[in-house]
Design a binder for these strands. Sequence first.
DNA 1: GCAAGGTC
Length: 644
Amino acid sequence: MFIVVAEKASVAEAIRDALPYKGLKVTWVRGHVMEMDLPMNLRAWRLETIRDIMGVRRFRYRVRDRESYSRLSSVFSGRDSVLVIATDNDHEGELIGYEILMLYRRIKGKDAEYYRMRFNSTDRREIVGAWSRLEGSLNWRWVGKAMFRHKFDLLTGAAYTRLLTLSISKSGGRMAGKSTGDGSGCSSSNSSSRDGYSAGSSVSDAGTRHDLTISTSHITGTNTGSNCTGSRNRSRKRSRSNDPMLISWGSCQTPTLNFIVEREREIEQFRPVDYWYIDALLMYSGIQFRARSTNIYDEVHASSIYESCRGSSTALVLEYKERAVTIHRPLPSRTDDVLRDLVRITGRSASYLLDVMEDLYSRGYISYPRTDTNRYPRGFDFSRPLRAALDGLGITLNPVHARPRNGMHDDNAHPPIYPVSPYHGSGIEREVWEYIARRFLANAYADDATLVKQHARLVTAEGSVELHAEGLYVRDEGFLAVYRYFMPEEHRIPVLVTNSSVDVEWIDLVKDRTKPPSRLSEAELLEIMERHGIGTDATRAEFPSLLLRRGYATKVRSRFKPTALGTTLIDALNALDGRLVNADTRRMVEMVMRDIEDDRIKEDEALNRSIELYDHLLSLCIKNIGAIADALSNITIAGKQGRR
DNA sequence: GCAAGGTC
């Protein structure tokens, strides 16, 4: 009996439909089954043990999804069961597969046979194809790189967060206290005989060893609380008023906050400058159009120029030019590009929109929504997405071959997002589906658009002041016909002839001043995060919301403004070492992950080397913690009073 | 009570 385990229920269902065979049982988990945590002796938050965190190399692997864990346990206990790992085809899916394998081999023995099934969509043929080419092993380099990231982020995140949080509570900034002890039902009050089982060496393949200790106390214990695995609750959490103040640090959240603080600094330091320009309304063969001079930064000079030309009733055309500009059709849909556009189009937050995509995916309307790929694989079958898009949009198209414009990104795990079946519903789901369908058509079945930019240079009859007029119109609509989201606004000027004369309707002197850059919108923040490799396509959307919950930033007219707490935190850390706040940490993590994947370094050595630097920076923080804590405490106490 | 990564 093959036991096929998918990463989520919706995929399990698709597999069951595609492979309706006897002797095949499909079940599922819900993302990670296990969660990495610090060993028990470091459970308590204490300043004295913070340095020890960085030295941890044996991790506790806790069961986080008890329901999946016990369901799998009982299925694996069947006498002739053989595991087929059907988690997502990416490194995090590989790690989830490893978690499943650990459990399987605890039951079946350390050499028990298993298979890995790889597919990139829940499309029936894709699944049938994957079943026909099962692999005999996990990709251990993928497991290793995912494991490295988990460990690095846990050690650094826990150490810095505890240091910052504990030191401000020491210096009097602590909020109304919640006990940090047990009583939650989540502790290991029931010590099972299997507690402390070490899985490290028993499931290593291909020379890969992972020092893990499985704690089974959650499974066998009498825990009824749901908050042990409550990631759902976490994201709903709004108020911090009853929590002890938490000052968190993380390789993704801190650089994201830093982007917001940096922008605020630019705005604060901005000094506006006054300038003037000549503005004119002109007319040529019955068509009105605007023209203006370049900016003049001196008031006296501007006035004299204006005085010299204000009596003009005509202007002379010095030059008229048209320039064709090609607007390329969009690339295949990657999560990041799609979210950024949809945030602009719908005004909803990226994390919400990703939920909507997840929902459309699980109901079979679009392909897997978390992808970093914007090129189609060789042999990709466009016919079904095409039918889905045309049907769902009510468009007819003469049969033509797909000729997608491909990008350069490939995560080697998922194809771009494409429509799988027509969605005829309404509301935000429809908006999202429609965007994906339209983008699919625009990319693979439409031409680039051609715009024409017009530029005219004129000179006033009196004073000889040079004026410029700009125009824009669409020559070939191309993909814009099906993808109207960011349609350029047409504003034509008449086609002018050199040396001809145009009428001046009025002429004016306008005063203006240079403006500071605006605060970051969510779309801009996401774009910057992506450019710096902060987060993944699946998680990036979460961080802006997290910063709001932590009280590091607020949203003012849908743009991000750092709070005093956020600014103080960044300033204090940045003063010690820029690497504590900028995107370097993440860049390093990404690089090391690539090295592990390409077998240039082993996971344990990668961890030692990377932690070394952040251990050094930690001791720097500890040396200076007095000043950091004072600055933060002043803010948090003031902030607390301010909220009352 | 920590991170970031999955999914719900």
